[in-house]
């Protein structure tokens, strides 16, 4: 095929509207959230002491951190969807560790050493490790779908950030159910769950976000 012939076919295909990653995410993420919330409503329930919990700094941290992760990762993801963007911006994510470390330090001071193990393991850590990723799957699909409309320089990095965003959303939802509020628990099991989704996002991105 000659290049001019190829150009003919590209020109013929040009009429359609092209949505970038941002528009696609705007359309698909709300749907994904509804699916996740429906899943939550079907298998889990809200914690009974929600009102009281909202007054404890531990619970607020447990909401704040996933929310920050999700917002930062979504912003980064849309940035990385452009071909000019370098994956080096990923290092800004390290700042997310600051509120977590502060929370861990506060907990270490406030909780006697003998009880560390108890608060860190909580009652149902494996449940958490399962449901954070499960609730993250619909947003992960939406995020990866949006990125497939983009042109990330590094598909792996883009997938990782998509996984992180989805993991943050899943963790935020799960936090409405779970009543282990210790930052120790948060660091172990929530972060563990988010890591699983992040890893998954990276693997899928590496494979399917090439262009």
């Amino acid at each position: 095929m000659k290049t001019d012939q190829l150009i003919d076919s590209l020109v013929a295909d040009q009429g359609r509207r092209v949505n970038g990653s941002g528009m696609t995410l705007l359309a698909s993420l709300p749907i994904a959230l509804l699916v996740s919330i429906a899943l939550f409503a079907y298998v889990l329930d809200m914690r009974d002491d929600l009102a009281a919990a909202l007054e404890s700094w531990r619970y607020l941290l447990k909401l704040l951190l996933p929310a920050l992760v999700a917002v930062a990762a979504i912003a980064l993801m849309l940035h990385l969807a452009r071909p000019q963007a370098a994956a080096a911006v990923l290092r800004w994510l390290a700042w997310l560790a600051v509120p977590l470390v502060l929370g861990l330090l506060a907990e270490a001071v406030l909780v006697p050493r003998e009880s560390w193990g108890v608060v860190a393991i909580g009652q149902n850590p494996l449940f958490c490790l399962f449901f954070v990723p499960a609730l993250s799957l619909p947003p992960l699909a939406a995020a990866l779908w949006s990125l497939s409309r983009g042109a990330p320089q590094s598909p792996t990095a883009a997938g990782i950030v998509a996984g992180l965003a989805a993991g943050g959303i899943g963790a935020l939802l799960y936090a409405a159910h779970c009543d282990n509020d210790s930052p120790f628990y948060l660091a172990l099991w929530y972060l563990g769950g988010i890591s699983i989704v992040t890893l998954l996002g990276g693997l899928i991105g590496h494979r399917y976000l090439r262009w």
């Binding site: 290049t3 190829l6 150009i7 590209l10 295909d13 040009q14 970038g20 042109a151 262009w211």
Partner: peptide
């Protein structure tokens, strides 16, 4: 020329970015 063509297709498909 193969690479030229492949790049043109990419430019076309990714023009939304």
């Amino acid at each position: 020329e193969d690479i030229v063509q492949e790049t043109l297709i990419a430019i076309h498909l990714k023009r939304g970015t």
